[in-house]
Simulated assay, not measured.
Amino acid sequence: MTGNFVTIGAALALGSSGILTKLLALPVFCIVVIATRLVGRWMEQHKLPDLRILLWAEILLLALGAVLALRFGPFPNSDAPPAMLFGMVLVSAMAIQNAVHRTHMASDAPSTLMTGSTTQILVDLVDLLHGAAPETRPALRARALRLSRSLGAFALGCGIAAGAYVAVGNGGFVLPPLVAFLAWLATESVRRNAKPA
């Protein structure tokens, strides 16, 4: 959302295209977060595997985004209907990711909030170097390490995405649903192996 506000400002200042799509992103994001929470709560009440179902919804949206990118991209006019649909599909996937993280993985390092994570890492490092009480040092180190792993994974993902886009253009949009699906398979395997026999 921060980046979206910055690009809206740039589009307004420079008169570039995409302002409608950028303006639509915020309400779509909000609606999908609300819908994700409501549907998740309904599934919890009905004893359905809400986390698994919501992650599948995210994977399917990423796959749909890849299909749209391959079929209609590149998008010279960001406000054209195919570009707008592509953008809102990916915004919806990101909204599900954010909502699921807050409701099911709140103790894990954020996977989408790099500004806050970077700030916290730097604050923790300063505190560790200058005056943190000895009893708080282990918790500060642990948090800085956890957030650093998340930040490193995010940076690696950005590098891979940029390389894929340079190498194969819109075909690079196939990677996110593929990686998400492989992560889901790995998680399912761990979950199955952790069950008592």
Results as ranks from 00 to 15, higher is better:
18 G>N: 03
18 G>I: 07
19 I>M: 10
24 L>I: 05
24 L>F: 03
24 L>T: 07
25 A>N: 01
26 L>I: 12
27 P>R: 02
28 V>A: 05
29 F>A: 03
30 C>P: 05
30 C>V: 15
30 C>N: 07
31 I>L: 12
31 I>H: 07
31 I>K: 07
34 I>R: 15
35 A>V: 09
37 R>I: 14
38 L>Q: 15
39 V>D: 08
41 R>Q: 10
42 W>T: 13
44 E>S: 08
46 H>I: 03
47 K>C: 12
47 K>D: 15
47 K>V: 09
47 K>I: 07
48 L>N: 10
49 P>M: 03
49 P>S: 06
50 D>S: 14
52 R>F: 11
52 R>N: 08
52 R>P: 09
53 I>G: 15
56 W>P: 07
56 W>F: 14
58 E>F: 00
61 L>C: 06
61 L>W: 03
62 L>D: 08
63 A>K: 04
63 A>F: 04
63 A>M: 09
64 L>E: 02
64 L>M: 05
65 G>R: 12
65 G>Y: 12
67 V>H: 09
69 A>K: 14
70 L>G: 15
70 L>C: 11
70 L>W: 12
71 R>T: 15
72 F>N: 10
73 G>N: 08
75 F>Q: 06
75 F>K: 11
75 F>E: 06
76 P>L: 10
76 P>F: 13
76 P>A: 07
78 S>A: 14
79 D>T: 02
79 D>S: 01
81 P>T: 06
84 M>R: 02
85 L>V: 14
85 L>I: 15
85 L>K: 00
86 F>V: 08
87 G>V: 02
88 M>S: 00
89 V>D: 03
90 L>C: 03
92 S>D: 06
92 S>M: 05
94 M>P: 03
98 N>I: 02
98 N>S: 12
99 A>Q: 03
101 H>L: 02
105 M>N: 09
105 M>W: 10
105 M>R: 13
107 S>H: 12
108 D>A: 12
109 A>M: 03
109 A>Y: 00
110 P>F: 13
111 S>L: 06
111 S>N: 08
113 L>M: 15
113 L>S: 02
113 L>F: 02
114 M>V: 13
114 M>L: 15
115 T>P: 03
115 T>Y: 09
117 S>N: 15
119 T>R: 13
119 T>Q: 10
120 Q>Y: 08
121 I>E: 00
124 D>G: 02
124 D>Y: 10
124 D>S: 14
126 V>I: 14
128 L>T: 05
130 H>E: 11
132 A>Y: 03
135 E>Q: 11
135 E>T: 14
136 T>E: 10
137 R>N: 09
139 A>G: 14
141 R>E: 15
